[in-house]
Nucleic acid binder design. Structure first.
Length: 571
DNA sequence: GCCGTTTTCGGCCCGACTGTTTTCAGTCG
């Protein structure tokens, strides 16, 4: 049991209590505890009940339940709840537009207890027979089922990384001298991943037995001396390739892909009298091996500079590698500031001081505190008076904890494109991120006009999570990103790459569009806790896939230079 | 279920939107 597993049990308790219609505050306590556990830096397996109780939000009951889960691997309360409802019912809660009440009604009235049951009922027109539901609801459910199907077997990069790392740790224990590297879409930094591909070198074939005996394995798909495949619970497929050390680079290259990149690379090899496969680069005449131990020597033998995995999508990287004009991709050490964060003043978990200290501990030079504005009532958003009072407190803390602070706001863009706070208030702040959080159901033209109108406000420095997408859950609101990028250019606003693993918004493709149009980008965490400042690693992968160099990202600048480049100071 | 207390009970962020209604329930954020 790790924190993630404990958090999942608590989350499932919350889900079932919700279906049962229990006290919403009790449900919130479980949900909150689940969040705390999954985001907590310490291993909950090692904390005793007293230490657990010291964590705000964990009281006597929850501390005992967490200990029980840590000690026994399960919770009796959780088991009892699962006995009341079939476990598959929880899958229904993940459908867009289907909440606990709907799940309860579907179960009670139609006996629906799984995704398959629901699909059959919806297709058979039986949903509309339930009181309070109609034909619209039925088609909404069918649409949600379709979206779910499209996402099946795919996972967020952040989660995939965790699963791959845990698997590799496990393999390393059995073969300490061997070398392991996760390749495939994960190595390329794709926003979501299907399979996990691992290349191993320097291990005995018996490693494959260890591989298929991993506790989370649900089904063994293949079990050979050099290649094995398994399916894990949680719908991951994992492939392990065991290769000789002299082929390590070739195998890494081959299994990292992308398919399009590999096809282009092999084509290039053929044109030069070589054959490229997962074992190496070979001369067609005579068949002798030219390269294969490292990726770099393979690329070099083909007249190319080594290409960072994030660029291997056949989007011009081969030509750039040949001309030695590949970008010097942005890295974490290039970032000097974070421009989007929340505190306890709205829906953040930590105070100004804690956030400032955490930013300083991560080597940041500056941090913008950008809590929500009043339209986001559920987050306890700030009105003008509170925003200004909060700004005073932020400025009072500026520089005291080893980091410069910017007093900002994440201001809602209202349905008509106006901003949630007065111009006077926005002008009095150091930085304004403007974001859409409501009224997503708009026509594309209307939504585009709305966002562009917001950008026309001279106090808007940055457009936050521009498309509103939530990976594997919903596509963004309909938006002409091209037109929005042009508007940002025209008005001198910057565009955010939001690093939350479930957002990654802008996407790599759109960020590259902004780069080509000369619109400045910023890389932000949208952190709601100190630990969340580290999610920047996911945004970085997106930025690198967009070919961004340090100079393309405003928050790589030293503090004074950065401030002068902000829209409010640059003209 | 947590928290804080004028300490064992009462409060705990709630508004917009949708689809179903004819005054509201459910979902989302």
């Amino acid at each position: 049991m790790d924190n993630h597993a404990i958090a999942r049990v608590l989350g499932e308790i919350a889900d079932i209590l919700e279906i049962k219609g229990e006290n919403p505050f009790k449900i919130r306590a479980y949900r909150n505890a689940s969040d705390i556990v999954s985001n907590h830096p310490h291993d909950f397996m090692r904390l005793d009940a007293d230490e657990l109780r010291g964590i705000p939000g964990i009281g006597k009951d929850l501390a005992a339940k967490i200990r029980e889960i840590a000690d026994t691997g399960a919770s009796r309360f959780h088991q009892e709840l699962l006995a009341e409802f079939p476990p598959t019912i929880l899958d229904l809660m993940n459908l867009q537009g289907v909440g606990p009440k709907t799940v309860a009604t579907l179960y009670r009235d139609l006996g629906i207890k799984s995704i398959d049951d629901l699909e059959a009922a919806a297709k058979g027109g039986r949903i509309r027979s339930i009181k309070g539901m109609g034909a619209k609801k039925e088609s909404l459910i069918l649409k949600a089922l379709e979206e779910r199907r499209q996402h099946a077997g795919r996972h967020l990069m952040s989660e995939t990384e965790g699963v791959a790392a845990a698997y590799i740790d496990y393999l390393k224990q059995a073969a300490p001298a061997a070398d392991f590297v996760a390749v495939g879409s994960l190595r390329r930094g794709c926003e979501t991943c299907g399979d996990i591909d691992i290349v191993a070198t320097g291990a005995e074939p018996s490693l494959m037995d260890v591989f298929v005996e991993y506790p989370a394995v649900e089904r063994i798909l293949g079990h050979g001396d050099t290649k094995s495949s398994v399916r894990l619970r949680d719908d991951y497929q994992v492939d392990l390739r065991l290769v000789a050390p002299e082929s390590r680079g070739a195998a890494m290259q081959y299994f990292t892909g992308s398919k399009a990149h590999n096809i282009a690379l092999r084509d290039r090899a053929i044109g030069r009298g070589f054959k490229l496969n997962e074992y190496g680069l070979f001369a067609v005449e005579g068949g002798q091996k030219v390269a294969g131990e490292t990726e770099a020597e393979i690329y070099e033998a083909l007249g190319l500079a080594w290409i960072p995995p994030e660029l291997r999508e056949d989007r011009g990287e081969l030509a750039a590698a040949e001309a030695h004009t590949l970008p010097r991709l942005i890295e974490r050490r290039d970032l000097r500031g974070d421009l989007h964060s929340h505190t306890t003043e709205t829906d953040g978990k930590d105070t100004i001081e804690a956030m400032a200290r955490a930013a300083a501990a991560r080597g940041l030079e500056y941090l913008a505190i950008t809590d929500h504005s009043k339209a986001l009532a559920m987050a306890n958003g700030l009105d003008e008076a509170r925003a200004l009072a909060h700004a005073e407190r932020i400025r009072a803390a500026d520089g005291k904890f080893g980091v410069r602070l910017l007093a900002g706001i994440e201001c809602d863009i209202l349905a008509d494109g106006s901003l949630d706070l007065s111009d006077d208030c926005l002008a009095a702040l150091d930085i304004v991120v403007a974001s859409v959080h409501s009224a997503f159901q708009m026509e594309r033209d209307e939504m585009t006009a709305r966002v562009i109108r917001a950008l026309s406000n001279p106090h808007v420095d940055i457009l936050g999570h521009p498309t509103g997408r939530m990976l594997l859950r919903r596509s963004g609101y309909p938006l002409d990103v091209d037109a929005v990028v042009d508007a940002a250019k025209r008005y001198g606003a910057a565009i955010e790459i939001n690093s939350q693993a479930y957002r990654l918004d802008l996407s790599d493709v759109h960020a590259r569009l902004a780069l080509e149009r000369g619109v400045p980008l910023v890389l932000s965490t949208d952190a709601h806790s100190t630990a969340a400042l580290d999610v920047v690693q996911w945004g970085l992968r997106m930025a690198r896939r967009a070919w961004l160099q340090p100079a393309d990202v405003l928050n790589t600048l030293p503090f004074d230079d950065f401030r002068s480049r902000l829209r409010r100071h640059s003209r």
